[in-house]
Design a binder for these strands. Structure first.
Lengths: 111, 111
DNA sequence: TCGATCCTTCGACTATCATCGAATCTTTGG
DNA sequence: CCAAAGATTCGATGATAGTCGAAGGATCGA
């Protein structure tokens, strides 16, 4: 992942409602959720939610798929993983900034 | 790290200039950099930079330390690590963010 | 085809962010 | 104490984000 993409992803997650929506979709798993379900769960106006979903979608963090009259949204785990990779590489400079890192254990890790 | 803190950190990093500043400080390591040096490296007005540094500081991502007339800023790796931990835990739902997701079951309400 | 459902787009409004010069604060050397 | 250096805070301005009702596009059942 490059800087502009990471920036887009960060910007998408850097909002209370969008972060909550994304976490909801993460919990929903690969099955995803319909826009209406999300709106109800979040208690927000459909048009407002749509705005945020579009934002997350542009950043590539969620995918959209039509199923009958409903639009199903689901989290893109690969994209999220790529973001974590970018942050680890570029914002930790090879230091012990690994996600869920064990205490600094130099080279050999004992299981 | 909790949601509000993660949100503050994400919001701080979700800006082109601030992300660049943070990466610069990460490269600078524990030694840090003076505000003036950063401003010159970034090519931005001192007051603008100060605005962004304050933002990063509020989010806990950087630390401030006076050294004579200069103010030295340095990246807080522990904080960054905490952010990565939050994202991994809360935005990957223990799936280790694997591109290959888990079992799918299609049991959705029809329209 | 028609009406209902589901969702997005549009339009207008408000709130917050980003920028930068000028003024201000802190520290230092003499 | 005074002047200079290094940064921040203030103030004004332009730009962007977020909200939500109303209107419009897509799909389905009958």
């Amino acid at each position: 992942m490059n800087s502009p993409d990471a920036l887009a992803a960060l910007s998408a997650l850097a909002h209370e409602h969008r972060l909550a929506v994304f976490r909801l979709l993460v919990q929903a798993g690969s099955e995803g959720m319909a826009a209406g379900e999300i709106a109800e769960a979040m208690g927000m106006a459909p048009s407002s939610l749509s705005f945020h979903l579009a934002h997350l979608n542009r950043a590539g963090l969620i995918a959209q798929q039509r199923e009958s009259r409903s639009l199903i949204y689901s989290a893109d785990f690969a994209r999220m993983n790529a973001l974590l990779g970018f942050l680890t590489e570029n914002c930790c400079a090879g230091r012990a900034c690994a996600p869920v890192a064990k205490p600094a254990q130099a080279k050999r890790r004992k299981a």
